[in-house]
Simulated assay, not measured.
Amino acid sequence: MRTHTGPEDWRAANRAMWDERVPIHLASDYYDQDGFRRDRDVIRDFEAAEVGDVTGKSLLHLQCHIGQDTLSWAHRGAARVVGLDFSEPAIEAARELAAEVGIGPDRATFLTADVYDAAQAVAASAAAPPAYDVVYTGLGALCWLPDIRRWAETAASLVAPGGFLYLAEFHPLTDVLDDESASRVAYDYFSRDAWVDESPGTYTDFSAPTVHNRRVEWQHTLGDVVSALAAAGLRLEFLHEHDMTMFQRFGSLARGDDGYFRLPADRPRVPLMYSLKATRPRP
Results as ranks from 00 to 15, higher is better:
Asp178Gln: 06
Asp258Cys: 10
Glu237Thr: 04
Arg21Leu: 15
Ser72Phe: 01
Ile24Arg: 10
Arg249Pro: 02
Arg214Asn: 12
Ser191His: 03
Ala160Tyr: 09
Arg37Gly: 08
Ala194Ile: 06
Ala141Trp: 08
Arg38Ile: 10
Ala231Asp: 11
Val22Lys: 10
Phe238Met: 07
Leu84Gln: 12
Thr55Gly: 15
His171Gln: 00
Gly256Trp: 08
Ile148Leu: 07
Leu145Asn: 04
Ala131Asp: 11
Met246Thr: 14
Leu222Asn: 02
Leu145Thr: 04
Thr279Trp: 06
Gly52His: 00
Leu177Val: 06
Gln68Ser: 11
Asp133Trp: 03
Gln248Val: 12
Asp175Gln: 11
Asp114His: 12
Ser207Val: 06
Ala16Val: 11
Leu177Asp: 02
Leu236Met: 04
Leu272His: 02
Ala48Asn: 08
Ala93Gln: 01
Asp243Met: 06
Phe164Cys: 04
Pro89Arg: 13
Pro264Glu: 01
Ser275Ile: 00
Val51His: 05
Val159His: 03
Trp10Pro: 08
His212Ile: 09
Val226Gly: 07
Asp114Ala: 13
Leu62Glu: 12
Phe238Ala: 07
Thr204Cys: 15
Phe261Met: 07
Asp147Phe: 01
Ala168Leu: 11
Asp193Arg: 15
Asn213His: 09
Thr109Tyr: 05
Ala12Tyr: 12
Asp205Phe: 06
Val42Asp: 13
Val159Gly: 02
His25Leu: 12
Trp73Tyr: 13
Tyr187Gly: 01
Gly259Ala: 04
Pro281Glu: 04
Glu8Ala: 10
Glu92Phe: 06
Ala228Asp: 01
Thr204Glu: 14
Ala152Ser: 09
His75Glu: 14
Ser227Thr: 10
Gly35Ser: 10
Thr154Trp: 11
Ala48Pro: 05
Ser72Val: 08
Asp205Cys: 05
Asp258Glu: 07
Tyr187Glu: 10
Ala113Gly: 10
Ile91Gly: 09
His25Thr: 08
Arg95Glu: 07
